[in-house]
Amino acid sequence: MAKFINTRKAVSEIEDLIKNAGEKLILVSPYLKLSKDFKELLTYRNSKDKITTVIFGKQALNPDEMKFLQELRFVILKFNEDLHAKCYVNDDKMVITSLNLYAFSMANNKEMGVLIDKNDSVDKQLFEDAMKEVDYINQTSQRFDFGGPKIAHSNNPTENKTNNTKQTNNKSKKTGYCIRTGIEIPFNIDKPFSYDAFKKWNEFSDPNYPEKFCHFSGEPSNGETSANKPIMKKNWKKAHEIHGL
């Protein structure tokens, strides 16, 4: 069953959660300033070509943090200005806590939280319910632009509306391919299915189920792609350059 954890235990469990993550790793933290140990963990995971999604908000990244994250090509960074939740999840475990992924908090604050294990039958439903909310936060957060304009907000509603329209138009011009059917769809690695294909996939919602096509190139992937990895490994660098992933 879910276990209570204090500050020290929370830090330790989050470290293990990152280190032992398989295909899935989502880190949700309003404030983001990584310690040396956590940078090493993310660098190690990145070297294994495994995608990590980091969702943050509330505070702009400092230049050193930005430079570090930019260099990790398998890290997807997202911004949500309304974010207050702190949650860290891999394929099997989840930590929900008051602890931000912030070096000062980990070293100085008094925090608490709970550890949930999907493989524990008592925790399974709790894990799945919490995962639905994590997925919702992920889907409603916007991809972070390291240049900054995507999270800049004007006091002029008309200007904001114009900027949003421009961004939407630009996104719509980026062509991707459904990883199940191969048909053309807007490029979005968080939504690599056509509507009909997504409805079929959603019956089981297996993020690692082998799919047939590369979302970036449209070429047959022979099972190399999945909802978790919609782009073939050989195409990731080019996709990163073109789409700013």
Rank of each mutant, 00 (worst) to 15 (best):
M232D: 00
K199M: 11
A21D: 03
D129W: 00
S35G: 09
A130W: 01
I183C: 10
K233A: 06
F213Q: 13
K150R: 15
G176W: 15
E224Q: 10
N119L: 15
N100D: 15
V28D: 01
K191G: 02
G218L: 14
Q59V: 06
N235T: 07
K161W: 09
K9V: 06
R143A: 04
V54P: 08
H243N: 08
P149T: 04
Q70G: 15
I76D: 13
S217K: 13
K67A: 15
S226K: 14
N138G: 03
N169G: 00
L41I: 02
Q139D: 10
I183P: 00
H153W: 05
N80C: 03
I137M: 11
D196T: 11
D135T: 08
F213R: 12
I14C: 05
N222W: 05
N156R: 15
E241I: 03
I116D: 00
T165D: 06
W201R: 10
N164H: 07
T52F: 13
D135C: 01
L115Q: 04
H84V: 12
P186D: 09
P220K: 11
K234A: 08
G218N: 14
E23M: 13
V114N: 05
A2T: 10
G148K: 07
N156V: 05
L41E: 04
Y31D: 09
H215V: 05
Y136H: 12
N46F: 08
N100S: 11
S12Y: 08
N222V: 00
G223E: 07
D91G: 10
P186W: 15
D91L: 08
I5H: 02
K132F: 05
H153D: 02
W201V: 05
D37S: 15
H84Y: 12
T181M: 05
D206Y: 02
I151F: 10
F79G: 03
F146D: 05
S154G: 09
K233E: 11
E13V: 02
L42N: 05
H84W: 12
S121P: 08
D190L: 14
L61F: 06
L41G: 01
I242E: 11
E40K: 15
N138H: 14
I116L: 02
K234D: 05
E159P: 03
L77C: 12
F104A: 10
L42W: 03
R143D: 13
P220R: 12
K67Q: 07
K33S: 04
Y177K: 10
N228M: 14
T7D: 01
E219M: 13
D135F: 15
R8Y: 00
N169S: 09
V11R: 04
C87Y: 01
D145Y: 09
K24V: 14
F187I: 12
N80V: 01
C214F: 06
F38P: 01
F79T: 04
L101T: 04
H240D: 08
L115P: 00
K173E: 14
I183M: 12
N188F: 04
K237Y: 03
T225F: 14
T97E: 03
S105R: 02
I96S: 02
